[in-house]
Nucleic acid binder design. Structure first.
Length: 292
DNA sequence: AAGATTGTTGCTTA
DNA sequence: TTAAGCAACAATCT
């Protein structure tokens, strides 16, 4: 589940690897993944370069020129992997038809989940893989991009992410505090894993109503969001199931998780059993003693 | 073998 | 007009 830290890790890696490299060829194997007409998509990108790569929330924005942008969203199981050439097993052929964990995390490429391959002129390749096929690629113009950007709330780790704004956005809402953190129109980039981790570190239960959370608690949530997202980027993200970076490597923050995925286990602070509930259809983990 | 897994959109309802 | 809540989407694992 790529959230802000995972997508940011990918963005930084791809800036180093692909900026200003001429695209030689684009192959699309699944016509639902690319939201534009597949043929014109490939044709358009041929000969183009990425001028820069930005991110808003969990969305990657590859700038082609001042009016054209390639959007890539990984949703739950999308991957962007960059490597020199197809890895081919000795004596075998390169396209694995059988899905396996090895295919999903760190195996040979392309595999049955590879839906798009961008080949650069220097023969390096960028693979878009997605087991669940929720992710997408889309070419958009400047006006579309502007509209899309407007749909996002305040962005952590930027100058717009200030306590006052954070507080006023949360305070208005009657829904659960966790829902507010997950709502991309209010705050961009936080997903299920980091929402649970931030609330644990802040001592606030996910099912508290946002408008009933004290100002001092909102300040804690704000501070912990900054700390945790920063630390997670430093650790190159969290691999819980399918996430890997552009080299196919897992994220190290999984070793720092305090509550996510630990339902029924002992709280690392107080040894109380971690409670797992369902909130807004999401698995939600918290410590009933440490979080009020 | 049903249920869980989750990011986002779009619909319905209040 | 806006917010809240939920179904739908997709494939795989337990």
């Amino acid at each position: 589940m790529p959230e802000l830290p995972e997508v940011e890790t990918i963005r930084r890696d791809l800036v180093g690897a692909t900026i200003n490299k001429e695209i030689e060829k684009v192959a699309v194997f699944n016509d639902k993944i690319v939201r534009n007409d597949n043929e014109s998509f490939s044709l358009y990108l041929k000969g183009k370069k990425f001028e820069s790569i930005e991110r808003i929330g969990k969305l990657l924005i590859f700038k082609i020129d001042s009016k054209n942008f390639l959007l890539v969203h990984l949703k739950m199981t999308g991957q962007l992997i960059y490597q020199k050439k197809d890895k081919i097993l000795a004596g075998g052929h390169s396209l694995s038809q059988k899905g396996s964990v090895m295919d999903r995390v760190g195996g040979r490429l392309p595999n049955k989940y590879t839906h798009v391959i961008i080949t650069f002129k220097d023969k390096t390749k960028l693979y878009f893989n997605d087991l669940r096929r929720f992710g997408y690629l889309e070419l958009v113009g400047g006006k579309d991009l502007k509209k899309i950007k407007e749909r996002f709330g305040i962005e952590p780790l930027t100058d717009n992410f200030v306590l006052h704004e954070f507080d006023s956005r949360i305070r208005k809402r009657k829904t659960y505090i966790k829902n507010v953190l997950l709502n991309q129109r209010i705050i961009a980039g936080i997903g299920n894993i980091y929402a649970d981790e931030i609330l644990f570190a802040s001592g606030v239960r996910p099912n508290r109503r946002a408008n009933k959370v004290q100002k001092s608690e909102i300040e804690k949530i704000f501070n912990q969001a900054n700390i945790i997202l920063d630390k997670a980027i430093e650790a190159r993200g969290t691999t819980f199931s399918d996430y890997v970076d552009t080299k196919g490597k897992k994220g190290g923050y999984v070793n720092f998780l305090k509550v996510y995925g630990r339902g029924g286990k002992e709280c690392l602070k107080c040894s109380t059993e971690i409670t797992k509930i369902k909130l807004a259809g999401r698995g939600t983990h918290y410590c009933k003693k440490c979080q009020k």
